[in-house]
Every structure is written in C-alpha cells, then in structure tokens.
Amino acid sequence: MSDRLRDAYNSEGLPPGLETRVRAGLQSRRPRVLVWTAAAAAIAAGFFGFLYVQKMMTVNRILAAAEPGLHSILRVGLRDHVYCAVMRKYKGAPAPVAKLASDLPVEMRGLAPVIQQHVPARFAMHVAHVCKYKGRSYVHVALHDGTRLVSVMLTRREGGESLTRTDLLTMTSAAGVDVFSGGSQGYDVSTFEKGEWLVFLVSDLEPAESRSIMLVLAPAVRDYLGKV
C-alpha cells in the first residue's frame, strides 16, 4: 500500500513561484539577521573590551608599584607573569602536563615535563603556552599549589639585554649557572641566560624558597636549551 500511496501523495508538485516566494521571504529577513548579528557582536566586543581594559588597568597598577624596586632586566619577567599568570583564575584540576605541553612549539614541548620534575611536587602545572606582552613573546609555564603561584618564562634577548652588566643584582651559582635575583612588592624574580634566551622564574613565594627552586631548575633548563 505504501508505494502506491506514496506515488499518489508525491504527485502533488511544488506550485510554480512558491520556491521563489520562500527564498524572497528569507532574503528579506537576512539584512535584519545581519544587523542583529552585528549588534550582538558589537555588544560582545564592547563587553570583552571593557574586561580587557579593566584587566590592563590592574596589570598596570601592579607593575607601577613593583617595577621601581626591580632591575630593568628583571622587569621583563615580572611583566608577563603579572599580565598572564597573576590575572588568571586557577580553578579545578589541571590538565596532564603532556596535554598542556601540546600548546607549546614543538621544540619546547619537552621543556614542560623538565620544569614539572624540578619544582616542588605540590606545584601543579596549569598553563604551558606562548604568550605576548607588549609585542614580546614568551614561552610561559605557570604552576600553582592552591595558594602560591610560580611562572617559568623564556624570552629571546632584545636590544643588547645581558646579565653580564647587572652589577645591582644578587647572584648565586648552581652547577655552573649564574642566577640573578631581585624582589619587589611580594614578587621574587630570578633569571639566567643561555644563548639567545633569558629564563625567568617569578613567584609570590618567600625569596629564599623562590630562588632555591630556580637553583634546582636552572641547570636542567640550561641543558634542555643546549639541545634545542
């Protein structure tokens, strides 16, 4: 019965002009959809723009307070830490290190497990990515223990930046790596150089603990960069 019924039913053809009429009806709605879409996009852009401005005001306020107490080369590390790590929310369990590392450039993916192995076990990796602050790129790994925050950042030297002329900094050596440190407004910043790279560790830990972490980490990171 179904085939014969279907044949009879399908004998009713689409009347001429209906398709054109439907399409014309849709066409007349499209500009309205575009206007609403553009309006929604503008509102969203405004909202996120507002959030971004708020964030940058907070970043600038923190940096304005902390930077004067730091040597200029240490500010390079502090800036990205405040911009990218401090302004982030650390909720829930972090993803596995291997998954986080997949956001890094191929040659830097091996760095994430190296860092995780050389920081105290209570710190879990929450971020591993490349970010930019004011045009400068950083390979950035952020770790959190529930209350304290540690960032490890690598950035290429710019404009003759060098640690050989930083007589104002405290220097400590570990396994042949000279680590320079300073602190301001609760932030402790340590750095060393390897080839074209400056490596920073920035944290809100006590200076002694923050620097001891860097002294453990620096030889491992130096060796890794030596192979890249």
């Binding site: 996009a41 852009a45 996120f48 302004m87």
Partner: peptide, 17 residues
Amino acid sequence: MRADDTCKMATWNAALL
C-alpha cells in the same frame, strides 16, 4: 579572562562582523 580568550573572542567577533 585570559589573554588568549580575549584573542579568540576578538577573532570570533571579527568573523561575525
């Protein structure tokens, strides 16, 4: 909001516009 979220949102908005 994260910096990369801001970037993604901006891209999305641009596509919409």
